[in-house]
Design a protein around this nucleic acid. Sequence first.
DNA 1: TCATAGTTTAGAACTATTCTAAACTGTTGA
DNA 2: TCAACAGTTTAGAATAGTTCTAAACTATGA
Lengths: 142, 142
Amino acid sequence: MRQTARDVPRHRAALARLRGCGLRPTRQRLELAGFLFRDCDRHVTAESLHDEVSKAGIKVSLATIYNTLHQFTEAGLLRQVVVDAGRSYFDTNVGDHQHFFLEEEGHLIDIPGDMIAVSNVPVPPEGLAVERVDVVVRVKRA
Amino acid sequence: MRQTARDVPRHRAALARLRGCGLRPTRQRLELAGFLFRDCDRHVTAESLHDEVSKAGIKVSLATIYNTLHQFTEAGLLRQVVVDAGRSYFDTNVGDHQHFFLEEEGHLIDIPGDMIAVSNVPVPPEGLAVERVDVVVRVKRA
DNA sequence: TCATAGTTTAGAACTATTCTAAACTGTTGA
DNA sequence: TCAACAGTTTAGAATAGTTCTAAACTATGA
């Protein structure tokens, strides 16, 4: 048994997902998609994802991790979350929701969209249109 | 008239402000406070503030700008606003309010606290306490 | 199977920020 | 008034995260 047991259904799902958004299914993108969309709702940084796949014995350069995270984001497979000046987070949950952010450990927790609401978002100044409303609830260990 | 005309009331205000929070009133801190708290509600980055004072012929190193912005933030004179992974903004308005963010030009606009509200901030998971709720309304030129 | 366009990569480059340690300055007390 | 000290500033080096470059590689379609 020389070959690593590969999770075939997961591979197929990743393949379909990439095909679905016109991204050529390369080994790297398939493997990264496999990790990202394995279970629901993950939050990763380029670094954390790189560590994770590296530890699993998969070789993907950091540059490719960055490229892939951005391509996935553009394709709507990921959402970029800005909570920390100096580090980018990516969220596999692209639906309507917001976040708790545990600054001390750089950890994000989803808040379902229907559990939080911003009332009365004011009309933006002349010539501007709202693109998205992001809420970050900064939390601390009590 | 060799000496630059100095805005005496502004200088006094800056002095009082620094004294008020136990920061030694050095030339650099006084000058930066003068720029930051001259008019109400400003949004600066380290770079933008450095450019501004430099153009006014004032010599303050970038390291000092960073130090000062952080010290002022700790002292409650400024509030750090996270809207962009990769660049820190500081806001002279430390009252309850939120922001429009014009990503394309890196520009912030205040939203008064009473014009926007987050309803039903959910109770954070066990052991965590809410520190602050930040809302960023990302806008685009229409 | 080939040609081609798209992709990956190591490493250099870049940007924002922090660190270091030496020089400088505001404050305090005599 | 002034010395002494602690706090502050600074240039420049260092670091962290990210992007760029250009050469090698690979998926795809004919």
